[in-house]
Write a protein that binds this DNA or RNA. Structure first.
Length: 837
DNA sequence: GCAAGGTC
């Protein structure tokens, strides 16, 4: 029997499609990457009995990046990124081993036999919903893979990469080279994130330029009976001229009676909601649950993988035909919160859901099984509760209410009074926050009736500025302008927060920072198109032409790159315009930071700039030296690097973490061939410097492949050895007053021996001994005194606990057999000769 | 160190 291989775009789709096509009788097993499954079943294809194997990829298989050497920021002019810099396709997620996985399945390619009596072996199924009819129809009318569509996607990828990276690198280098308090490690630019920021700044500008205006409102009260009066709304709403307002007051205030001119009663309905899609879920999560989009999405994903809700990324707000609405509803029939509503719906019949939009991706988000707060935890529960209430609401009835209106005349002026009374609450019972507010009912009256006027007065009010954009409003704007997709909208919002362009204020409103404001105002000044939401849609139009086969891929790509290359050069030439705005809000490098350590060239103090990205700046030499981020930097005992005379600094990730000294110059300009940028003394191969890896290295890390455990000479009396590559930290020899790395090595594992002096009173050594020399891995005395941990990170998430693996286990163990021995050169002088560049 | 877009 022949085999038909089918590949879906993600695991969830492979599963549901295989289920439909096999009518539920398939056998499934995990693929070699542990993420994608293979579903097998027997059926017919092109009139023959065949064995189907259905699997999937998992997101994009390939991604695009520049060739390695074009990723060196200080060696490549960003302008080169528009054309000269070559790109390559890389595996998007090497851990998934997607390419190998498909190659295994694709091994059948050479022996593939054409189907349908033709010559073709590869087909593409096109469907617009995951339903029996749609999927079966798609299988019956297979098409071919569309090369033009693929080219259009390739073009978008390349444009985004080249344009985004060029602008980002230029801006970042330019402004970070001038200012010391920007407080953002990256001044990024992108066709989605920049317009997203633009929306927030646009609102900020509206608030800033808002001029409050005074207006006047005529307010009238009529007495219904002895102790009840009715407040009337003026039909003119408001006037902006004081004298005119006064005139209206004068014309009405002497009137004793208000005459009823008309009454009306209308039955109105408040519609049940459309089925739930991703952006609506994110809007409600932000505005009603106070949950940011990124967090809401993560929570929804967890609910999905645990089987509580359906797939949470969908644009569709329409339930497919034949969608089983009663099944998920029945599962909620015994839920303590909404059992009554659900039982009633099941007994009396559910309502037909409203017709929504079918985007052809996934069905709307619905609950898949009943859950309680106790099993989900409060955060996930709140989202689940909302999703479930929303689902029940979509099959509930509209809320019906009676709207009564009475029109009054007082003198020449007209007033109205409206009231709402609920006839049947419908879906608002399950979504109480949507319910029609309870009001006192209006008096019964008819045309010609009169009521005594209680009071007529003039109220002076002021127009008020809009507030900052809420996340929910921003999501709506992005959706409207086609900025990002359901999956990427949260990412863009998160990006502009992380880059410190906006901050989330109370009510989840996004307030732009000075940096965000200056950037957007700068774009407006130089080239407004860079920040307008049309920047993306204009390019999309061109890309669609490629997809439709109406335009040539090379031509569109070349032309668009050319346009943006010109924009880039113009931007670079005009950067002074943005810089003028920067100057007002930020301080130059030379005026920022505190003096910390001495420059090895001029021997003057360099200033430590703490704001992101933290660095040292020598104003005399006008040089900047980057430092490791996310930790604290201190002067290291005024010790100097023997190579360049710079004063060393000590980086530390906190008391529970690790620390190591580094030379600011070597960190940026590696002194030896086998060193890279960003290495501290704990990775320095200098053969004789007392701070180097060569002198303080002990032996191969017990966990990672390439790291070496290095003694932290500053850690006493709670001594530590830390891996110079990964997070492993070994605590050792508490209360030893001196620990030195001996030139001797262990005869069995080649690790350096340690020479330890203990405090007399607290020595853990047998007898009265205070001194011991041995190998931390092999010496039986030392093995008891070493404990392995992961360095605690500075991130608050990780505060207050050791890492994932703790305890003494492997720290005492020997290096795994077959690994290279500790990286200590045996002949130090010959090693030095080889290292010098 | 960079974009946007997929998904886990």
């Amino acid at each position: 029997m022949k085999t038909v291989l089918m590949v879906a775009e993600k695991p969830s789709l492979a599963q549901s499609i295989a289920k439909i096509l096999s009518r539920g009788s398939m056998s499934s097993h995990k693929g070699l990457n542990g993420t994608c499954s293979v579903h097998e079943y027997t059926g017919t294809f092109a009139g023959q009995p065949v064995r189907f194997k259905m699997t999937s990829v998992c997101g994009h298989v390939m991604t695009l990046d520049f060739l390695g050497k074009y990723n060196k920021w200080d060696k490549v002019d960003p302008a080169e990124l528009f054309s000269q810099a070559p790109t390559e396709k890389k595996e998007a997620n090497p851990k998934l081993n997607m390419v190998k996985f498909l190659q295994v399945l694709d091994a059948v390619l050479p022996v593939m036999t054409p189907a349908h009596g033709g010559e073709k072996t590869v087909f593409r199924a096109k469907f617009s919903s995951i339903t029996d009819t749609d999927i079966c129809n798609a299988m019956a009318r297979l098409g071919e893979p569309d090369h033009d569509e693929a080219l259009s996607v390739d073009a978008r990828q390349e444009l985004d990469l080249r344009i985004g990276c060029a602008f980002t690198r230029f801006q970042t280098k330019y402004f970070q080279g001038k200012y010391g308090d920007l407080d953002s490690s990256l001044i990024s630019f992108g066709p989605c994130q920049t317009p997203t920021l633009g929306f927030c700044v646009e609102r900020h500008d509206k608030i800033q330029s808002f001029k409050p205006e005074t207006y006047w409102v005529l307010q009238a009260k009529v007495n219904v009976d002895k102790d009840r009066s009715l407040l009337l709304d003026w039909d003119r709403v408001r006037v902006f001229d004081r004298e005119i307002a006064q005139m209206f007051l004068n014309m009405t205030k002497l009137e004793k009676e208000a005459q009823v001119e008309a009454t009306s009663k209308k039955e109105k309905a408040k519609q049940r909601p459309l089925a739930l899609n991703t952006v609506e879920m994110l809007r409600v999560a932000s505005s009603s649950l106070g949950m940011g989009p990124q967090h809401a999405m993560q929570t929804a994903e967890r609910l999905y993988t645990q089987g509580y809700i359906s797939y949470p990324r969908t644009e569709t707000t329409h339930y497919p035909e034949n969608f089983d609405l009663k099944g998920p509803l029945r599962q909620q029939a015994n839920h303590p919160y909404w059992a009554d509503t659900v039982k009633q719906l099941l007994a009396e019949g559910i309502n037909r859901p409203r017709k929504g939009h079918d985007a052809g991706d996934h069905p709307p988000i619905t609950p898949m099984r009943s859950a309680t707060e106790a099993e989900l935890g409060s955060e996930a529960w709140r989202l689940y509760e909302y999703i479930t209430r929303h689902f029940i609401a979509t099959v509930s009835y509209d809320c019906k209410y009676l709207q009564s209106t009475i029109s009054f005349r007082i003198g020449p002026e007209h007033f109205t009074c409206t009231g709402k009374t609920v006839i049947s609450p419908g879906f608002t019972e399950i979504m109480p926050w949507q319910s029609v507010p309870l009001e006192e009912s209006l008096p019964t009256c008819q045309k010609g009736d009169t009521f005594p006027v209680g009071e007529v007065k003039l109220l002076e009010k002021q127009t008020s500025p809009p507030d900052y954009l809420t996340e929910a409003e921003l999501i709506t704007l992005m959706e409207k302008h086609g900025i990002g997709t359901d999956a990427s909208i949260p990412v863009h919002i998160n990006n502009i927060c992380q880059r410190n362009y906006v901050v989330v204020e109370s009510g989840r409103r996004l307030k732009p920072t000075n940096l965000g404001i200056v950037l957007v105002h700068g774009y407006y000044k130089i080239d407004a198109e860079l920040v307008l939401p049309t920047i993306r849609s204009a390019v999309e139009k061109q890309l669609n032409l490629i997809a439709q086969g109406k335009a040539d891929y090379r031509q569109v790509l070349g032309h668009t790159l050319d346009v943006f290359k010109r924009k880039f050069h113009y931007f670079v030439d005009s950067i002074a315009g943005m810089d003028e705005l920067m100057e007002v809000s930020f301080s130059p490098l030379a005026a920022t930071g505190k003096p910390l350590s001495r420059c090895g060239k001029c021997h003057r103090f360099m200033k430590y700039i703490q704001a992101k990205p933290s660095r040292l700046h020598c104003s005399h030499c006008d040089e900047t030296y980057t430092l490791p981020q996310n930790g604290t930097i201190k002067l290291y005992k005024e010790l100097r690097c023997p190579l360049d005379d710079f004063e060393l600094v000590l980086w530390s990730s906190g008391s529970r973490g690790k620390s190591y000294p580094l030379c600011p110059y070597c960190y940026n300009h590696p002194p030896f061939r086998d060193m890279k940028k960003g290495m501290g003394c704990n990775e320095c191969t200098h053969p004789t410097c007392q701070h180097s890896l060569s002198m303080l290295g002990i032996g191969q890390c017990v966990e990672c492949e390439s790291g070496v455990l290095v003694l932290d000479p500053t850690s006493g009396p709670k001594w530590k050895m830390a891996c110079n590559k990964c997070n492993v930290v070994a605590h050792c020899f508490e209360n030893a007053h001196r620990v030195r790395v001996s030139p001797e090595t262990c005869s069995s594992c080649e690790a350096a021996l340690l020479d330890v002096d203990f405090n007399k009173a607290k020595s853990p050594l047998p007898g009265d001994e205070t001194q011991h020399t041995g190998c931390v891995f092999c010496d039986p005395v030392f093995q008891e005194l070493v404990e392995l941990k992961h360095a605690a990170s500075c991130h608050p998430m990780h505060r207050g606990g050791p890492g994932r693996r703790q305890g003494r286990g492997r720290a005492r163990g020997r290096r795994p057999a077959g690994k290279p021995s500790a990286r200590r050169p045996k002949d130090k002088m010959s090693a030095l000769a080889a290292y010098f560049v």
